[in-house]
């Protein structure tokens, strides 16, 4: 019986050593669980500070920073509303316009499009993305149709894909921190491979 006990102990010790050894080569990640719409909404929130808008994008020093979306019942939008509550970037208070009037589009800073919105915007997407409007969607192949940032789940993670070709034609600039961790997409027209 003693032999069995020592065998068990040493096996436990081996298991622990394995874990501790492996933990020395760690990458940041997280053990708790969050839903996809929570993660997406916090990404949207972060974009407000990791992307720089030209001064002209704000009517005044204290004008709000505006997120625009169509569907008030979407879980991502509902969560975004909670995420940005009481927050501001610089002197600009964060607000959410949902649903927004097409006429208001010029006052939007981030436009979040969901799959159901895409048919309406598909054709004008490249044009929308040339000004100071950050177009974001959680639909696959969004960057191919001229969108700026795609937030799509790859395997178990949500990672942004940035269309840098389109970005160069816009008046926005993206922090290198965000660019480093994002997947980069380039439109084939530029002559380079994606």
């Amino acid at each position: 019986m003693r032999a069995i006990a020592s065998k068990k102990l040493s096996a436990t010790a081996r298991g622990l050593c394995l874990i501790i050894g492996l933990s020395l080569v760690t990458l940041p990640s997280f053990a708790a669980s969050f839903s996809d719409h929570q993660i997406k909404s916090v990404f949207l929130f972060n974009f407000a500070s990791f992307v720089r808008w030209p001064e002209a994008a704000f009517a005044a020093e204290t004008s709000p920073f505006v997120f625009c979306a169509s569907n008030a019942h979407s879980p991502t939008i509902k969560t975004l509303r909670k995420v940005i509550e009481g927050e501001s970037v610089g002197s600009h208070k964060l607000v959410l316009k949902v649903p927004f009037e097409p006429a208001d589009l010029t006052s939007c800073h981030i436009l979040f499009l969901e799959e159901s919105d895409l048919p309406r915007y598909q054709d004008i997407l490249p044009r929308l993305s040339t000004g100071s409007l950050l177009t974001v969607s959680d639909t696959a192949n969004f960057v191919d149709s001229g969108g700026l940032i795609e937030l799509v789940q790859h395997k178990a993670q949500i990672q942004p894909t940035i269309n840098t070709s389109q970005l160069e034609q816009s008046k926005l600039s993206i922090s290198s921190t965000l660019l480093r961790l994002a997947n980069i997409y380039r439109t084939p027209e530029t002559g380079e491979t994606p």
Binding site: F30, S33, F34, Q38, I39, F50, A182
Partner: peptide
């Protein structure tokens, strides 16, 4: 808690 994460942590989260 999510809001306190860095972008890199956010991108490495496993979706529940």
């Amino acid at each position: 808690q999510l809001k306190s994460f860095s972008l890199a942590e956010l991108a490495n989260l496993e979706v529940s």
